[in-house]
Each structure stands twice: as structure tokens, then as C-alpha cells.
């Protein structure tokens, strides 16, 4: 099953997207802990797309595509921003960064999902992620 959502760059849409994420996670058969992890990763990536990617420009869209299979949920989150190089992001766990306010979103996504990819294209940025059922 594939579900595609497109919406303006506003954080108020995050709750709806995480509700869709939770419904699809249930459908695949994830337990409550993994459903929470997936919703968190989706929420973080959409928040990044709205805030850092599209910079709250409501003329720009965020697109989220969920692909549910029998044993996994794949999610793609795209924005219309300039993108970023995830490998250059500082480690928020480093002692010098621990007390800094931000910089944890991508790190959390990388930690709670099984696979995460970043595709920087001309005029857009896609974060792709997957969670697999532990059968």
C-alpha cells in the first residue's frame, strides 16, 4: 500500500502526518515501541523539511510518501529547499554540543530507524527511511 501526502510548509500538519504513520505502522504489525519510533522519525523529518528545508515558506510543499509492505514501512520526506550534507552535521552527543539547544533531529532519525538515506537534488531534498519488522 502506498500513501502520498502533500501539504504546505506549516508545522501544524505534523500531527496528522504522524497519525497516518501510526495507522500504517499498525497495519504492518509493528509493536507500540516501534510505532512510536517511526512516528518520531517522521515527525523529525517533516519538522526539518518545514523549518530548515522550506524555511516556513508556505508557497513550498512538503511531500511524504509511505510504502507499507508485509514486513516493512518505507517513508520518503521531500522538501523544496537547498538541502544539507548530513555527514557534516555535528554529533549532538559530543561534550561540547550536549548543552547546545538544537541539532538532534537527524541524529534521532538515524538512531530509531533501520535504514536512512539522504538524496540532495537540484532544488529539493529527500530523506528516505525504513523500519523492518523483526520477524
Amino acid at each position: 500500500m502506498e500513501v502520498e501526502l502533500k501539504f504546505q510548509s506549516e508545522t501544524r500538519h505534523i500531527e496528522f502526518v504522524t497519525e497516518v504513520s501510526d495507522s500504517l505502522s499498525k497495519l504492518v504489525g509493528f509493536n507500540e515501541t516501534d510505532r512510536h519510533r517511526i512516528a518520531l522519525a517522521v515527525s523529525e523529518s517533516v519538522a526539518n523539511a518545514v523549518r530548515h528545508g522550506n524555511q516556513f515558506d508556505t508557497h513550498k510543499e512538503v511531500q511524504v510518501t509511505f510504502t507499507a509492505t508485509s514486513d516493512a514501512l518505507q517513508i520518503s520526506v521531500s522538501d523544496q529547499g537547498d538541502g544539507f550534507d548530513h555527514s557534516s552535521l555535528p554529533d549532538p552527543r559530543a561534550p561540547e554540543n550536549l548543552h547546545k539547544p538544537g541539532g538532534r533531529g537527524v541524529f534521532i532519525i538515524l538512531n530509531v530507524m533501520d535504514s536512512v538515506g539522504f538524496n540532495r537534488m537540484d532544488g529539493s531534498m529527500e530523506v528516505w527511511m525504513e523500519k523492518r519488522l523483526n520477524l
Binding site: H36, A39, L40, S43, E44, A47, H99, K100, P101, G102, R104, G105, I108
Partner: peptide
């Protein structure tokens, strides 16, 4: 029941 990185940021700010 739910906290995200923005929530963590606020906790860190409040702590500081």
C-alpha cells in the same frame, strides 16, 4: 507521552 527534538531543546534551554 511524547517528546521530540524541539521538546528536548526546550528542556536543555530551561536547564541552562
Amino acid at each position: 507521552n511524547y517528546i521530540d527534538s524541539s521538546g528536548l531543546t526546550e528542556l536543555v534551554n530551561c536547564h541552562s
